[in-house]
Design a protein around this nucleic acid. Structure first.
Lengths: 227, 227
DNA sequence: ATTTCTGATCTTGCATACAATTAATATATG
DNA sequence: CATATATTAATTGTATGCAAGATCAGAAAT
């Protein structure tokens, strides 16, 4: 495989792992040195990540890890909610034994992690659970879109799973989602997934609220635009 | 602005305009000559377009305009249907006078084009109408996703608007969508948009059916997966 | 003390050169 | 004549060099 592809993955992983935080500068020269290559493949990797919306490449001003505004972040979670609920709707309509089993297995893993209060493990298993739902939509294109957005939001999702009660609540919501999909209730599956995802966005917004200047609350601006 | 950005736009436009058709090879050297630049910015543009899914860059084997399989194409239309219906749902919930006026204006333009049987003009106005709905969702991130997918599908949508009766039917569907959004009926708006988009995918599938090998019908494979 | 200019420095954008891999063509072989 | 193989040509991937714009520091001015 080409250098650029590997580098793209490596940089993306570093961002997801939180090694580069939102706002951090991704300077070509130092990345080139770090990975022992020239600037060319680094540039190519950065531009691709930029095109995917993962980072922000500003002409002549270098690349930084995106810092979405609170409003933007809420919009991203809302979009994730819509896409996930679409996956859930299709999954309820098309569920196969394979996909059912995959979701079940992922759910069990989440359960175990939650029982141990291991939020890092839950974070990983939670991702598998959601990805199982994406696949269960049996629309690989939609699933790809869902994966991509899920990754972009991972940095913001991780933080809030720290709280133990949120872990248990999340698990219960998962159970409800599974139930609805198995019952073939498209509407219910869609609604439950939508709420499950959106509550994360809202929780995160509330958290950001404490750090960001007043009057900039995403929740407020949402209600405002919601009329 | 940088060369690469302009080139990216230029190549994308050429693809949308149908100058490069699905399957065509996008060779770096000839593009460089055509635009009077070196291969470097061309490569950067191609890699970005590849990351956006607009073209297909195969390692060591050059870039081609994507040739989605019939199944993949159907999945893309289905995803578009889900995203558009999400836009419609939010638009119905949050409609403002500004957005209402914009949709109305776009609808009027479609009407005029349809009356004249000018399918090229209708194609352009139709796009404006849909974009007005995306914006009316008041979620700029979701709207961006919708724009992007709309562009990717444009090559496949254009062909089928040639038929005059489809033009008139499309127009009527638009009217129904507008009505639902204005009534604030989220569910109805979502359903009508979903069907409006999906019928395009199905029509296109039927068209492709004639050209593709038997047993590969996207409609069939869909029904199959739908169980 | 704060702001504005000016030059020095650093970083990015593009071109060119070369290396590595794939595709094409010719040649050999059954 | 078809198939396999070797050689050549074409194309992509990476490195390097240089020019142009951005950033920063310090001096001058308000």
């Amino acid at each position: 495989m080409s250098q650029a592809s590997r580098l793209k993955q490596a940089i993306e992983d570093a961002v997801i792992a939180g090694e580069f935080q939102p706002g951090d500068r991704l300077d070509e020269a130092s990345l080139a040195e770090r990975f022992g290559v020239s600037r060319t493949p680094i540039r190519e990797a950065l531009l691709q990540l930029g095109a995917e919306g993962f980072i922000d490449v500003r002409p002549r001003r270098g690349a930084i890890v995106s810092v979405p505004s609170p409003t933007r972040l809420f919009e991203m979670f809302e979009t994730m909610a819509e896409i996930e609920s679409a996956c859930g709707r299709l999954a309820a309509r098309r569920l196969t034994p394979d996909n059912d089993a995959a979701m079940e297995a992922a759910h069990r893993a989440c359960e175990a992690a939650a029982r141990n209060g291991d939020s890092e493990q839950y974070y990983a298993d939670n991702r598998n659970f959601h990805e199982a739902i994406y696949r269960a939509s049996r629309n690989s294109f939609l699933a790809d879109q869902a994966f991509a957005l899920h990754k972009r939001l991972s940095a913001y999702r991780r933080i809030q799973l720290r709280a133990r009660n949120r872990l248990l609540q999340s698990l219960q919501e998962h159970a409800g989602i599974l139930e609805a999909i198995r019952a073939g209730d498209e509407q219910l599956a869609a609604t439950r997934l939508h709420d499950h995802v959106l509550v994360q966005g809202e929780r995160f917004s509330d958290m950001v609220l404490g750090l960001s200047p007043p009057g900039q609350s995403p929740a407020e601006s949402r209600r405002e635009t919601a009329k």
